[in-house]
Computed example of a mutant assay.
Amino acid sequence: MNNNSSDVQKKIDTVITHTGRHPKSFHGFVNPPVVHASTVLYPDVETMVTGKQTYSYGRRGNPTTDSLEEALTEMEGAAGSKLANSGLNAIALAILSCVKSGDHILIADTAYGPTRHFADTVLPGYGVAVEYYDPGLGDGIRSLFRPETTAVFTEAPGSLTFEMQDVPAIAAAAHDIGATTLMDNTWASPLFCQPLSLGIDLSIQAGTKYIVGHSDVMLGTIAASERAWEKLDTFCGAMGSHVAPDDVYLGLRGLRTLSVRLERHQRNTFTVLDWLKDQPGIGKIRYPALESDPGHQIWKRDFTGSSGLCAFDFRKGTTRDEAYSFLNALKFFGLGFSWGGFESLAIPVRLNGMRTVNQPEDDLQSVRLHIGLEDPEDLIKDLDQALKQALK
């Protein structure tokens, strides 16, 4: 059987299970080998000088890295995919592949904090002008374009605030001026959103999160459209970008269960939030899959599911000490900055001061939650006892 046959239209669960696997090439083994290699030998000098061999040097790829890149390319509907050492590394490589000195890049004001740090500390040093835009602009982003605008970086939903944006409208406007469009799609993963189908050129994932799924590997991925693939491939090769085969293999392992894990994350999150919304100490819940969320209609149009990452604000008047007391009282929710693994996590969030275009009106105490794979009733009991201890 050819796992990559295009004679039938495969549904996403089948793609996740089969793509990137070639048992006939590896003596029938279901998974590809974990290839540890730097030097690759040639049968003769003629093959060496003509380059007529699949693999030339470890940095340029091997059967392990090819398997994951092939799987991601099919899932994303891309022309090609590249791996990176982390989500942030993937963001940096993707941006640098499409900007140069003298260019202007627009970045969503709700972007991931380390993305903003990279943009503010690295890009200006290379002569790239950075400007943040209101994610609610949609087609109105045209008003910010300059003759030198070459890239627009989106993230949906936005980091910490979970604001949605009209990605197809923004992408269409950007393409009208020949700009490259990028999107951090880590929240939904390629399972629940395919950015390239929305007009995005470079779809970026922190594979550390849901693709790996087990809190044990750092990994980034970039899937490119036809118009962006050549530049991305050339740039990543020139930068010597390469991911260790053991990490790639663990990414492949996680990918095979992505669908069943995200289904559970999604179900657990709805159960927990349905309880949380009725608690007296809770204000706004931030999760675009909820009908009450301001971005729900865009989410419903562009996404096919949701993940376990969400946030909520405490009621007005809640102090920082009370918010911290709540977090310290949690038993099943660990205090950790990552997410996407099997475990539930929580971090404090202060929304005021994190934006440069539109500041939140209220300086509220907020918490970001990652709802893991535990029994949701246990998670609810944990949140309940922590709220009762903190908000007396």
Rank of each mutant, 00 (worst) to 15 (best):
L106D: 03
M354Q: 04
L191D: 00
L369Q: 07
D378Q: 14
Y324P: 04
P360L: 13
P114D: 03
G251M: 03
R368N: 05
G158H: 01
P135L: 14
G254E: 05
G207E: 00
Y287C: 10
G283Y: 06
G334T: 12
A84Q: 07
K82E: 08
A172R: 11
A386R: 00
A223T: 06
V217G: 00
A228I: 04
F192Y: 13
K277V: 13
T73V: 13
A92I: 11
R261L: 01
P33H: 13
L273H: 04
D362S: 10
T115D: 01
C193R: 05
P63I: 10
P32S: 05
G254T: 03
Y324D: 12
L330A: 02
Q53R: 14
S25V: 02
T180Y: 04
L250W: 07
A79S: 11
D134E: 07
Q279N: 13
G341D: 02
N328A: 15
D278S: 13
Q165H: 03
V122D: 05
M354Y: 01
V49S: 08
F337N: 09
P43Q: 11
Y42H: 12
G199Y: 06
L252H: 03
V212Q: 01
G308H: 03
S366V: 10
V243C: 01
D44G: 12
T304R: 12
H22Y: 12
A386S: 13
E74I: 15
S38H: 13
I298G: 05
T150D: 04
N4W: 11
G317A: 04
A188P: 00
G136V: 13
E74G: 01
E377H: 11
S6C: 09
S5L: 12
S197F: 05
Y133H: 07
R227P: 09
Y57T: 01
G213M: 09
M239R: 12
Y324I: 06
D103I: 12
G240S: 06
V122N: 02
P376N: 10
K331N: 08
P348T: 07
T150P: 01
Y249Q: 06
R60K: 15
G372N: 02
T180C: 09
E226R: 15
T64R: 03
